[in-house]
Each structure stands twice: as structure tokens, then as C-alpha cells.
Computed example of a mutant assay.
Amino acid sequence: LYHRTPREFDAASGALMEVATRLVRLAVERARAEDALRESEGRFRELAENIQDVFYSYDPRTRRMLYVSPAYESLWGRSCASLLEDASSFVAAVHPDDRERVESQRAAGGMQLSDIQYRVTRPDGSVRWVQDHSYPVPGPHGEIERVVGTARDITPRKQADLDLMHTNRALQMLSRGNEALVRAEDEQELLLEICRLAVNVGGYEMAWVGYALDDEERTIQPQAWAGNEMGYLAEVTLTWAEDDPRGQGPAGRTIRSGHVVVNEDILTESAGFHWRAQAGDAVGQVGRELLQQLHFFPARLGHHRREQRQQPEVALHDGQRNFGLLALFSAVVAKTRWEEVKLLQELSANLAYGISS
């Protein structure tokens, strides 16, 4: 402290010095805290913007998204700006089958820790699995100030689990099918049991076996089926004739080629599924879902032929020619699982052997 004239350092001057020192100390500490906060925020943004997990911060009181990291754009397929503008778009992108669970969690206002899995449908129609972990951040008076969380893409893990499940089912089908070959007392019983196994053990929505006749129209005649057939087979006329438009579908191609034919979505025009409109009319909306996938497995024998839908279809073969097929329908569109297909091919080969024997 400076004075214009000399004077003794008194108690008032001491108190003034103490106050000034305290203010300076507070100002320095605040400046240091602000620097540390800026540095911490910089490190956080550097981390959040360079990893694949999505970081987000949400205000449950105003239902406003406070922050979301750039990884949101690659996982959700939507811009961060669109989410910051409309927080409800976060849930709107969730798969309809999972949306209720996610909405319930958000409606709780983040009052507790949350760790859920759900699917996100991106604008291009692709679906990704998300693991979402969030927790509440209380304010100074104990109220929930915001909810922060991370969302991780776990699609590869879920797909691996799904592939393993389907392979195990196919193995069980193969094992149970071999048992049926031994126990069946006649051909029709064997065909019905294989179809039932495809539905009850393999998890397919519908399975059927057809024989390829040598009549003038080269008809494919259904012999046995199981699952949600809903009158579909009675509504269509299948053929393996190459010069007939009805024979250009997966069933006809399976019979003619003897190869497995897999249609990942038979409702697309490129699938060549001639009867997709009739099948939709016959079985309604549920049936349209069942028609999403079909596998046709060729079977070979001396006198006949056969088929089915996901579609895989496998031909039945007796060593001379394809005489029929095994067709399997799945309710969902999915990428082909070739390990599963190989096991189903083995099942169809055993079935063809059982019939020819």
C-alpha cells in the first residue's frame, strides 16, 4: 500500500492488506480453475471425437440434448446437429420392437443407472445393435441435473452370437433328422418330421418339401409342410420348366441346377420370386414378413424332385438327378450363414438317401 505522506502501519491498513490479498488469491485460483476446466474439456472433446463410442449428455428436465459426440453420426446415420435440435430423434431411430423399453428408461428421467441393449434403424435401412450405459449426475441440491452416457456399436458381437445360435440349431436339426431317418416307418412320415424339425428345432417359420414331376408342365408338387403355411402352397403353382416365368424363381432354379439357392429377401423384384404378390394376398401382412427369407435345398433321386424358402432351398438328389427340394422360410431378412447352409445341405442329402432307400 502506498500513501502520499509517511504514516505508521496501523490495524486498518493491515485489514485492507488482508482483504486485498484474499481477493487476489481468489482471482488467481479462479483463473487456474478456468484454465484447468478448459484443458479438461479439451482433453474430453479430443477423446470423445476420436473414438467410436458415442458420448452424450441429456437434460431430463427440459428433454434437451446438451452434447453428443461425432461418433453418433456414423452409428445412427444422422447428423449431430439434428439430434441437438430435436432430442426425440434419438428414440425415433430405435427399432420399433425395442422403442418401448428405451422410452420407458428415458421417461424415468435418469433416476438410476441404466444399461440396456437395443437396435437402431439407420436412414439406409441397415440395423445396428447398441449397448447404452447411462447414469444421472446430481446438482448441488441433490436434484438430477443431467444424464450422461455412452452408446457402443455391438453389432459384430450380436451377429456372432446369432450365427452361433443358428449353427447350433442346424446341428440339432441334422442330429434329430438322422434319428427320424431311422425311426420313420414310411416316406410321408419322414417328410413331415423333417419339416417339423425345421420349424420346432431350426427356428424357421415354415418348411416344406416338394417333388419335381416329369409331367408336361414340369410341376413341383408339395409333399409335406410344417409351420405358418397359411394356405400359401394351395394358392401357387410351382414349376421347374426353364421356359416358364413361374420356373425362374428359386424353386425352379434349385431343381434345374441342383445347387442351394438362397434369397435374403424374396419380396425384392431381383429375387425372381414369381408368386410374391399372390403369397402376400394369401397370407396377409404376417405372411409378407414370413416371405422375407427363403432357402431352397435341392434333393436328388431317381423319380422325383423337391424345394423350400428364407430363403434357402436345397435340391434332393439320388445320384442320377434332382428329384425335389427342401424349402425353409425365415421371418426376418438376414445375411446368409454359410456354415448353417452347409449343415442343411447335409440334412437334405440324408433325407434324399432316406427316400431313395
Score class of each variant (00 low, 15 high):
residue 141 H to F: 08
residue 145 E to G: 10
residue 346 E to D: 11
residue 3 H to D: 12
residue 11 A to T: 06
residue 206 M to Y: 10
residue 51 I to G: 02
residue 222 P to A: 11
residue 305 R to G: 15
residue 252 G to V: 01
residue 289 E to W: 01
residue 329 F to W: 07
residue 269 E to P: 05
residue 158 K to P: 08
residue 307 E to R: 04
residue 302 G to P: 14
residue 190 L to W: 07
residue 220 I to T: 05
residue 330 S to N: 12
residue 23 L to W: 04
residue 288 R to V: 14
residue 243 D to K: 01
residue 300 R to K: 02
residue 313 E to V: 14
residue 46 E to R: 12
residue 86 D to A: 08
residue 156 P to M: 05
residue 195 C to V: 05
residue 34 E to R: 14
residue 10 D to W: 04
residue 247 G to H: 04
residue 280 G to M: 07
residue 249 G to K: 02
residue 315 A to C: 10
residue 335 K to D: 15
residue 239 T to L: 08
residue 1 L to I: 12
residue 112 Q to K: 09
residue 67 Y to P: 11
residue 249 G to I: 02
residue 249 G to C: 05
residue 131 Q to S: 15
residue 213 L to I: 02
residue 234 A to H: 03
residue 94 V to P: 13
residue 219 T to Q: 01
residue 16 L to R: 09
residue 184 A to P: 00
residue 149 G to E: 03
residue 52 Q to N: 10
residue 78 R to F: 04
residue 212 A to P: 10
residue 259 H to S: 12
residue 62 T to C: 00
residue 86 D to Y: 06
residue 49 E to D: 14
residue 145 E to S: 12
residue 57 S to E: 11
residue 99 R to A: 15
residue 77 G to E: 07
residue 69 S to I: 08
residue 179 E to G: 11
residue 319 G to C: 05
residue 225 W to T: 03
residue 107 A to M: 05
residue 324 G to V: 04
residue 83 L to Q: 06
residue 28 V to T: 12
residue 132 D to E: 04
residue 189 E to R: 10
residue 107 A to S: 13
residue 322 N to S: 14
residue 185 E to M: 09
residue 130 V to F: 12
residue 95 H to A: 13
residue 177 G to I: 00
residue 198 A to Y: 01
residue 279 A to N: 01
